[in-house]
Design a protein around this nucleic acid. Structure first.
Lengths: 145, 145
DNA sequence: CAATACTTGCAACTAAGTTGCATATAGGGC
DNA sequence: GCCCTATATGCAACTTAGTTGCAAGTATTG
């Protein structure tokens, strides 16, 4: 999807020192079409270099804090991390397979929710909406045939 | 909301032996307007009787398995448990406060998602849709003033 | 080159939930 | 009533995913 230099750029333009590990973490997330669990990111980074899990979690926290990465909940107990929405990357619903736990992105705009509508008749402040579909993914359907 | 006997009835009509602990767990969930975390259910039950955490989790698994209770994800690492949808209890979106973590139910029908629409242009089997709003709850807004 | 700040690693810890196994407790059959 | 089996509960130890404290390494800056 992107050049290495694009990731370095993203880091720098968010005032994050682009260390090799940070670059590798961001790239692992950015190069995958699906949001990944920390363990998957760890495996991806470790295929190229060595990283400690604490460092990984701290880099993830940093990237989430800087708004580069979005922390998603998959309905199980492990977060998934995906690239945050940018000009080229709209908000979209996600799908989680209840058999294998994989998370996939669905097309944006399949439906849109107007947060302001809720805002008016609510005493709460609403910031995000998260739409998650659950079911069986394509490869699990194939596998059981 | 309900009589004790209603909960016993629910259990029996789902072929679950209505032991005092199961009844207390189901009642704790049913009498609260919000879906509760396991720790909250534990506290509620323990105010009346003694229960071990393993027993609680096993009862929760059983009730979820029998379709009496729904396991919800709040975006943090603890599940919430709420009464499953019945004739009198429609599916509805939830709200989670990102400050205190409380989960609340929103009115059903504020928007409806047609699962079949997704089904047609998807190679996946979709079973549920989960809509979760995130923001600041009323009492946290008051607290900061 | 020393002082300081930032980054990474290691070990130990935490929260939420799970597993294995032992001990109740409840019904059936005789 | 007593034995046998099935189900329910409890206790301890374990697991997973993530966090904290602190030490050591690296970089930057005056």
């Amino acid at each position: 999807m992107n050049e290495r230099s694009d990731y370095i750029n993203m880091l720098e333009s968010n005032a994050v020192d682009p260390t090799p590990l940070r670059e590798a973490v961001l790239m692992s997330i950015g190069e995958d079409s699906r949001p990944l669990a920390a363990a998957e990111i760890m495996a991806a980074v470790r295929s190229r270099m060595s990283i400690n899990k604490v460092t990984l979690y701290r880099i993830l926290d940093l990237l989430v804090g800087k708004g580069l990465v979005k922390r998603l909940s998959a309905g199980d107990r492990a977060y998934r991390y995906g690239m945050a929405k940018t000009r080229h990357h709209q908000a979209h619903p996600h799908f989680v397979c209840s058999r294998c736990g994989v998370m996939e992105c669905l097309e944006p705009g399949l439906f849109c929710i107007d947060i302001r509508k809720f805002q008016t008749n609510s005493k709460r402040i609403i910031k995000y909406v998260d739409v998650r579909f659950e079911g069986i993914c394509e490869s699990c359907i194939k596998a059981q045939k």
